[in-house]
Amino acid sequence: MIATDFHVQVAARVSELRDLAAMVETFGETHDLPHRTIFIVNLALEELVTNTLVHGSFEEGVEPQIAIDLSIRDNRVHVVVESNGGKFDPTEDTEPDLTSELDARPIGGLGIHLVKTQADNFSYEFVDGINRLILEYNLT
């Protein structure tokens, strides 16, 4: 397969999500990826952009930024997401409550759990003030 990598840096705003989704669709079509893979990559980006906005702490004048790299390596979709806004390590997130009855079920806390569960590999590093998440999805 000819590598057609994809890189985009956008302001982390919810209004950018539709454009990001369209770009992931294009990437998926270029590589003839399964529908499920396109969906879960889209979901991961949506959850991570939202997470940056909710958990990031930004000094005045600093805009939330997110940089995304998509590529195919060794029969895997390789996704790198870099964001500013101070250290946020989602690998330290505790497991959300997935079993309580409706009335007791807490609202929220699911996004990162979905991302971690669906990725075949999920790693995090904090380098030079940038959060870098690396996600991999097997194509088998």
């Binding site: 979901l43 949506e46 409706l102 929220g108 699911l110």
Partner: peptide
């Protein structure tokens, strides 16, 4: 075609309220 945890949260809030 797509729903994220933000949308799922809305359904959970709705389900609790309707219940």
């Amino acid at each position: 075609s797509f729903i994220s945890s933000s949308g799922m949260r809305v359904l959970l809030i709705g389900a609790k309220s309707i219940r």
